[in-house]
């Protein structure tokens, strides 16, 4: 089975980009938290963690 090429430089660049996307997502998520009542976001959290 032939394995693909791995371009480490490109992957490192992607890691940084992906990290930034994840930081941007946290911005969106915290905006959503602030806009929604405690009952709503905490139910989501309970369903998720339990």
């Amino acid at each position: 089975m032939k394995t693909p090429n791995v371009n480490i430089k490109e992957l490192e660049k992607f890691k940084k980009k992906n990290f930034q996307e994840r930081l941007d997502f946290i911005d969106k998520y915290t905006e959503w938290l602030k806009k929604n009542p405690n009952k709503k976001w905490s139910k989501q959290q309970k369903d998720f963690i339990d």
Binding site: T3, P4, N7, F14, K28, Y29, W32, F48
Partner: peptide, 17 residues
Amino acid sequence: FIPNMEFKFPKFDIDKW
């Protein structure tokens, strides 16, 4: 919002593989 499916197209050769 959580959990969510992070959905993307393949970018690198390793993704396609």
